[in-house]
C-alpha cells in the first residue's frame, strides 16, 4: 500500500463490527483493500460475511462517518466485492480470543467441507466454563453467521460463530 492508502486503512481499521463490537472490521476480514486509482480516487473494498448481511450498510456509513471526522473523505468511494468469498478462516487468532471472552464461541474448524451436509456437528467449547460437553440447539442464531448452542455442564446457552 502506498502512503495515502495506508493512511486511509489506518484511519478505518479499528471501526468495530456493529453486532460484535469487541472485534474490528480489520480483524473480522470485512475490510479487504484500499486502492488509489491513477485518477487519485481512493476505493475502499469491503466484503460481506453473508450475502444478506444487514450490517453492510452500517459498515459503509461508519467508514464514511469516520473518514469525514478525520477529514479524509475527499474522493473516497466504497465498493462491495464478493470475490474471494469471505471465510471464517480470515478471523485472526487474536479476534477469536476476543470473541470467546465476549461469550461467543469462535469457529471451531476450517471452513465447512462438502461431505459435512448430513455429517456430525463440530465440537464446540463453551465460552463460559470451557466444557466441550455442548449441544446444538439451532443451526441459525440471532444472525445468520451464528448458531445456538447450550452447555450441558454450566447449563448456559451461548452463540457459536459458524464456520463458513
Amino acid at each position: 500500500m502506498n502512503e495515502k492508502e495506508t493512511k486511509i486503512w489506518n484511519a478505518i481499521k479499528d471501526i468495530p463490527d456493529p453486532e460484535i463490537p469487541v472485534i474490528t472490521i480489520e480483524e473480522l476480514g470485512v475490510l479487504r483493500k484500499v486502492e488509489e486509482k491513477p485518477s487519485g480516487e481512493i476505493i475502499i473494498y469491503i466484503t460481506p460475511t453473508y450475502s444478506g448481511c444487514p450490517a453492510m450498510k452500517r459498515f459503509e456509513d461508519d467508514i464514511t462517518q469516520t473518514l469525514k471526522e478525520k477529514g479524509l473523505d475527499e474522493n473516497v468511494h466504497i465498493e462491495t466485492v464478493y470475490d474471494p468469498a469471505w471465510t471464517t478462516d480470515w478471523i485472526t487468532d487474536e479476534a477469536k480470543k476476543k470473541l470467546e471472552k465476549y461469550g461467543i464461541a469462535p469457529p471451531a474448524q476450517k471452513s465447512y467441507d462438502k461431505a459435512a451436509i448430513l455429517g456430525k456437528e463440530p465440537t464446540v467449547r463453551c465460552p463460559r466454563c470451557k466444557s466441550t460437553n455442548t449441544e446444538l440447539i439451532s443451526q441459525f442464531g440471532s444472525t445468520a453467521c451464528k448458531a445456538l448452542y447450550k452447555c450441558n455442564d454450566c447449563l448456559e446457552p451461548f452463540e457459536y460463530f459458524k464456520c463458513l
Binding site: 450475502s51 464478493y82 470475490d83 468469498a85 465447512y112 459435512a116 448430513l118 443451526q139 463458513l164
Partner: peptide, 24 residues
C-alpha cells in the same frame, strides 16, 4: 463469467447450511 462465479462461491457456503437444515 467472473461475477456469477463470485456470487456462486459466496452462495454455496450459505446454501450448504440451508440444505442441512431442510434435510434434517
Amino acid at each position: 463469467d467472473e461475477t456469477l462465479s463470485a456470487i456462486a462461491h459466496k452462495a454455496v457456503k450459505e446454501v450448504k447450511y440451508h440444505l442441512r437444515h431442510s434435510a434434517n
